[in-house]
């Protein structure tokens, strides 16, 4: 966003028009997408009004009564919503610390494997869990970590790491870490794909130069690979931060139970339980709109901060 160097005299100055004419080719590349978004994203956006109206599917949005911020007020003053908000935010923060770097580290380590076959095999296998639905994967996890018959407790007790089996799914304090680690295990390979593509895009002459300079392996990674993929890391980081108030529904829905709900309730499960099954469209829309606004704000802040620190941003 650094192109506006010309002083703004008039809206359509001659130079501007000339410059515009000279870049018609790139402008025409962009326009179809802009029109596309107008039709498929902007036209339906009148649906956002639902959040400020008392909407039911048997009347049109235009016919529904305005209620202003009533539904916003309703959820913001609800204790269970606040609890869900806290859990969502906490899990995203832990996720940012543990879950976010994992695919990156995995990609960097994988890149250091010299045996090409092993490298490809590992990479292919690592993305398999992406294709398992949470219903299957979660069911398996519940069994593996169960109190009486779970393999995990069995192994931990036998090796003497713990004295008594742990009630993994029943004790609220374990939930955040378990959810994040299992999600990480499921998505590590898939999440690494973009990094691997970015690493592949790094100019190999830079590596050659580094080798000639006698740089060690670690130094090559640090001075060549990482700077080469900073752009990708920054983009993913900015969006992870922007999505701090989103956490996947499917996983939590499977792993949640009435014992761990104090830490496992997230915004989406809360909405599902209290809203969607009763067709409270306006209430759900109010939460959705708030989340979108916050995400936009976080995005701008994260982008700004990132430009200050790494001199890289989204664009």
């Amino acid at each position: 966003m650094q192109e506006l160097t010309l002083p703004k005299k008039r809206l359509f100055s001659k130079e501007k028009f000339k410059r515009f004419k000279n870049q018609l080719d790139i402008q025409t590349m962009v326009w179809p997408g802009i029109i596309f978004l107008f039709i498929f994203s902007y036209i339906p956006m009148y649906g956002i009004l639902i959040a400020f109206k008392d909407y039911s599917i048997v009347s049109t949005i235009a016919e529904s009564d305005w209620v202003g911020f009533r539904y916003f007020q309703q959820f913001l003053t609800n204790d269970n919503f606040i609890r869900a908000l806290r859990n969502t935010l906490a899990m995203n923060m832990i996720g940012l610390a543990i879950g976010f770097p994992a695919p990156l580290i995995f990609a960097l380590l994988l890149n250091e494997i010299s045996n090409q076959r092993f490298k490809r095999l590992t990479q292919t296998i690592s993305y398999l869990p992406h294709f398992l639905s949470w219903v299957i994967y979660g069911g398996l996890l519940i069994s593996l970590f169960s109190l009486d018959t779970g393999v995990v407790n069995d192994v931990l007790v036998r090796t003497g790491l713990i004295e008594r089996p742990i009630f993994w799914w029943g004790e609220p304090r374990y939930f955040w870490v378990l959810a994040i680690l299992t999600n990480m295990a499921k998505s590590i390979g898939w999440g690494a794909i973009l990094y691997l593509a970015a690493i592949a895009g790094v100019d190999s002459q830079l590596y050659e130069a580094a080798v000639i300079d006698g740089a060690s392996r670690f130094k090559r990674v640090w001075h060549v690979t990482i700077p080469g993929i900073t752009g990708t890391i920054v983009i993913l980081m900015i969006f992870t931060i922007a999505n701090s108030f989103n956490y996947g529904f499917d996983q939590i829905w499977i792993l949640q139970n009435n014992l761990n709900v104090s830490t496992s309730e997230i915004i989406d499960t809360y909405i599902y339980k209290t809203g969607l099954s009763q067709m409270r469209f306006s209430y759900a829309a109010a939460v959705g709109v708030s989340r979108a606004v916050i995400a936009m704000i976080l995005l701008v802040l994260a982008n700004f901060t990132s430009k200050k620190i790494t001199e890289q941003g989204l664009f």
Partner: peptide
């Protein structure tokens, strides 16, 4: 392209569609 005129408008225009949907 760095010289694209209206780039920041296009960027904002596009980013909004990533977060706001009409349902």
């Amino acid at each position: 392209r760095k010289n694209l005129m209206g780039k920041s408008f296009y960027a904002t225009y596009g980013l909004i569609t990533m977060f706001f949907t009409g349902g």
